[in-house]
Nucleic acid binder design. Structure first.
Lengths: 217, 217
DNA sequence: TGCTATCGGAGTGTTTTGCTCCGAATGAAC
DNA sequence: GTTCATTCGGAGCAAAACACTCCGATAGCA
C-alpha cells in the first residue's frame, strides 16, 4: 500500500488502472472457483482492494459478470484465430482446447440464464462459434479429427472441463485436469473409432441456456 | 394425491415409505442439477411432498446430504463389483464409468468440506476405492487400459463428468454428456499413446477435500 | 362417527450478501 | 508546508434467501 507507484504516468491514476485489472483477474479466479455464488466481498479481498474501489468501476455484480463473459469470449476468439494460424490443424485445435480450459472460458457457462445478455455479447459469441467451426473443419479436412465430431462437441468439451475451473496454476487440481484433458484429446483424434453415440449437439440448445428468463424458482 | 394407495400392506404407511423414496430421488436430482446450494423447498416440491414430510424423515439438510453421499458410494461399490464380474475387463471398466456418471455419483463430490463426515462414510469410501483399484488392475493386466492410468484417474474422471449432473434422462444434456464420455473412454483405451502428463493424482489430495473444516470464510 | 397418524405448506427467525457512504490517505499545485 | 482534489478501504445497512417449525387439514382404521 505504501509502496511507490510512480512507474506509470500519474501516481494515483496508475493505481486506479492497476486496481481495475486486479479486480478483473480476481473476479475470474473467484468465480471460476466458487461459481456465480461467489461473494463480491471475496473478490475484493482477493484483489486486495476495498469494496468502494470495486463498485466505483463496476456498477454491480452483474456488470462485473458480464464484463468477464465478454472477456472470456474474446479470449476464445483469439485462441481460435491462433488455431487457424497454426502450422497443422491438430496442433491448432488441441492448443485451442487447452488454452480455453486453462483460461476457464467454460467456467462462466453455468451462469447462463442468471445474466441479462446484451446484443453485443450475442454477436461476440456467434463470431467465436463461427471461427471454431473453421478450426474444426480444417482438422477434418486434414483428417486428424475423429469423424462425426462437430464444433459444438468441442465447445461443450471446453465447457465441461472449465466447470469449476481453472484450478490455480501449480496446484494438484490443475495437474489432474491436464491429465484428463490429455485423455479426452486423444479420444478426439482420428483413429477410426466407432461413430459417436446419439445425435450431434444442436445450436438451438447451446444458445437456449443463455436466453434470459428471470429464474425458474 | 387422491389416487388409491392400497397396493402395499398398510395404506398410510405405504405412502410414508413411498415418500421417503421420492424425497431421496428428488434430492439426488436437484442436488445434482443445482449443487449443494439447492434449496430444501425445491427438493420437497420436486418430490411432490410437503416440507413437513421431508423433515420428519431427515432431520436436516445435512442429514439428507449425508444419506445421499452414502447411497452414491454404495452404488459405486455395486458398480465396481459388477465390473469385476464382467466377461472382459474393458466392458467392466467402461460400464463402471458410465454407470457412475449416469447415477451422478460424482455430483456429490463438490460438497466435500461442507459436510461432517462419519467414520462409516470414510470406510465405505475406502472400500469403493479398493474395489476400483482391482477393476483398474484387471484392465491393465488384460492390456486394454492405457498405461499410466491409475484408479484415481478413473475416479476423477467420474467426478468430472458427474459435476452438475446427471442430466435428466432423455434430455439433450444427457446425450451430450454421453458423447463426451464416449470420447474420453476411447482416450482411456490402450493404444500406446504417449504417457500421460504430470504425476498421477495422489490419494492424499483426493481425501483431503473431505476433511471437515467449518469453512474458509 | 370419532380417533390417531400422517400430510402439506404458510410463516418465522436468522443468516447472508449486494451495495452505500464517509473518513483516511495520497499526490499535485503553489 | 499547506491546501485541494481525487481515490482508497471497509464498516454498516437494508433486503432477500433460506433452513426449519408448527398447526390445520386429511386419510385410514375401529
Amino acid at each position: 500500500m505504501a509502496e511507490s507507484q510512480h512507474r506509470s504516468r500519474r501516481g494515483r491514476q496508475a493505481e486506479a488502472e492497476r486496481n481495475d485489472r486486479r479486480v478483473l483477474d480476481a473476479a475470474r479466479e473467484v468465480f471460476a472457483a466458487h461459481g456465480a455464488d461467489a461473494t463480491v466481498a471475496e473478490i475484493a479481498a482477493r484483489a486486495g482492494v476495498g469494496m468502494g474501489s470495486l463498485y466505483r468501476r463496476y456498477g454491480s455484480k452483474s456488470d462485473l459478470l458480464r464484463q468477464l463473459c465478454t472477456q472470456a469470449m474474446e479470449e476464445s476468439i483469439q485462441a481460435a484465430e491462433a488455431a487457424l494460424a497454426a502450422p497443422d490443424a491438430w496442433t491448432g485445435l488441441s492448443d485451442y482446447v487447452r488454452a480455453c480450459v486453462a483460461r476457464g472460458s467454460g467456467a462462466l457457462a453455468p451462469l447462463a440464464g442468471s445474466l441479462e445478455t446484451t446484443p453485443e455479447m450475442w454477436e461476440t459469441s456467434r463470431r467465436g462459434r463461427r471461427l471454431l467451426e473453421h478450426v474444426v473443419a480444417r482438422a477434418h479436412s486434414e483428417g486428424v479429427l475423429r469423424s462425426g465430431v462437430t464444433a459444438l462437441d468441442v465447445a461443450w468439451l471446453v465447457e465441461f472441463f472449465g466447470r469449476r475451473g481453472p484450478a490455480a496454476p501449480g496446484t494438484e487440481d490443475e495437474a489432474i485436469r491436464r491429465r484428463l484433458l490429455a485423455i479426452s484429446l486423444d479420444g478426439l483424434r482420428n483413429r477410426d473409432a466407432g461413430p459417436l453415440p446419439g445425435p450431434a449437439p444442436s445450436a438451438q440448445h447451446y444458445e437456449r441456456r443463455w436466453q434470459t428468463e428471470p429464474r425458474t424458482s
